[in-house]
Computed example of a mutant assay.
Amino acid sequence: MTIYSLYIYDRHCACVYYHDWHRAKRPKPANEGGGLYNAVNRGVAPQSSESSVQTTPTFNSPRNTLSLNTGHVVAVGEPTTPLPQQTEHEVSKSNALPFDEEAKLVYGVVISLRNMVKKLSGRDELFTSYRTSAYRLHLLETVSGYKFVMLSDPNTDNLRFVMRQLYNGPFIDYAVRNPLVPMDSREQGIDNDYFRAATDRFIRGLSVFGP
């Protein structure tokens, strides 16, 4: 069993945070002008024409790292293993969706299934997860309108309690209570070093995280 990725959407249906762990290939960068907020994830940010000629950055989660602005230690632990690197040609030729389209597709699936469950089963019935042969999708909706979506191995039990702990812990501590994180700006994500490191540490500490 393992956890693949985490998406967080705000009340305006936009992805404000993305994190992955056991993804075989890194996502394509988002399209310029595709509507992706700033500070969602540096690895999937739109690449300008100037940056396209540079070496593709390593796409991995910060674990042993320093804050780029302050130099303070963010987290201590084993270094993460970077995902296999791809050249710009390989990224452009792969059949993966650009991240902005991928995030919209995930949100569309969640909303469609949630609405279908409500129509078929009544307003008191909650859509929390669904399973395919390749993955299981888990959903947690907060009272403030944020949606936590997690993809995992199909054999994983419901991870709603994990996302609840993530919301009550790192999200409240490093996003909601952080005056420097704009929570409802409609143009800025919530990817700050402390929240990303705390999320990574929390997920890696789970028994279902996998090798």
Results as ranks from 00 to 15, higher is better:
Ser112Pro: 03
Tyr135Ile: 11
Arg63Ile: 13
Asn64Leu: 15
Asn69Pro: 03
Asn69Ala: 12
Leu97Phe: 13
Thr58Phe: 13
Asp100Leu: 01
Ser61Arg: 15
Gly108Asp: 05
Gln86Met: 15
Ile111Arg: 12
Asn95Val: 08
Arg114Gly: 08
Lys93Gly: 00
Phe99His: 10
Pro82Lys: 00
Ser92Phe: 09
Ala96Pro: 07
Val74Thr: 11
Ser94Leu: 11
Asn115Cys: 04
Pro79Gln: 09
Val91Asp: 08
Ser133Trp: 05
Arg123Gln: 15
Leu68Lys: 13
Thr132Gln: 10
Tyr107Cys: 04
Arg123Met: 10
Thr87Val: 07
Gln85Phe: 06
Lys93Cys: 12
Ala96Val: 01
Tyr107His: 14
Glu102Asn: 06
Met116Lys: 08
Gln86Glu: 15
Arg123Ser: 15
Glu88Leu: 10
Ser92His: 07
Asn115Thr: 09
Lys104Asn: 14
Leu137Phe: 06
Val76Phe: 08
Lys118Pro: 01
Gly77Thr: 02
Val106Pro: 01
Ile111Thr: 11
Ser133Asn: 09
Leu105Glu: 09
Ser67Gly: 12
Lys118Arg: 10
Ser121Asn: 10
Arg63Trp: 13
Gly108Trp: 05
His72Gly: 00
Ser92Asp: 14
Phe127Asp: 00
Glu125Gly: 01
Ala96Asn: 15
Phe127Thr: 00
Thr132Pro: 13
Thr70Trp: 04
Lys104Met: 11
Phe99Thr: 04
Arg131Met: 10
Thr81Tyr: 08
Arg136Val: 04
Val117Tyr: 02
Ser67Arg: 00
Glu125Val: 12
Glu90Phe: 02
Ser133Thr: 13
Gly122Met: 04
Ser94Lys: 01
Phe99Gln: 06
Gly122Lys: 02
Pro62Arg: 03
Ser121His: 12
Leu105Trp: 08
Ser133Ala: 14
Pro84Thr: 05
Val76Thr: 11
Asn64Gly: 09
Gly122Cys: 05
Leu105Ile: 05
Pro98Leu: 01
Val74Gly: 01
Asn60Gln: 15
Asn115His: 13
Val106Phe: 07
Pro62Trp: 05
Val73Ser: 11
His72Pro: 00
Ser112Gln: 14
Leu68Arg: 13
Leu66Ile: 02
Glu125Ile: 06
Val106His: 04
Leu68Ala: 13
Glu90Pro: 00
Phe59Cys: 12
Thr80Gln: 12
Val76Pro: 02
Tyr107Ala: 04
Pro84Arg: 09
His72Cys: 03
Arg123Gly: 07
Thr70Glu: 05
Lys93His: 13
Ser92Ala: 15
Tyr135Cys: 08
Leu120Asp: 11
Lys104Ser: 14
Val117His: 03
Val117Pro: 00
Ala75Glu: 06
Thr70Met: 03
Phe127Trp: 03
Ile111Leu: 13
Ser92Met: 14
Leu126Gln: 11
Thr58Glu: 14
Val109Phe: 05
Glu90Ser: 09
Leu66Pro: 00
Asp124Gly: 03
Pro84Val: 02
Leu105Lys: 09
Ser92Trp: 05
Glu88Phe: 07
Val117Phe: 02
Arg114Gln: 11
Asn69Met: 10
Lys119Glu: 11
Val106Leu: 03
Thr58His: 07
Phe99Asp: 06
Lys93Trp: 08
His138Ala: 07
His89Gly: 04
Gln85Glu: 14
Tyr107Thr: 00
Pro82Thr: 02
Pro84His: 12
Thr80Ile: 07
His89Ser: 11
Tyr135Trp: 10
Thr87Gly: 12
Ser92Leu: 15
Asn95Cys: 07
Leu66Phe: 10
His138Cys: 09
Val106Ser: 06
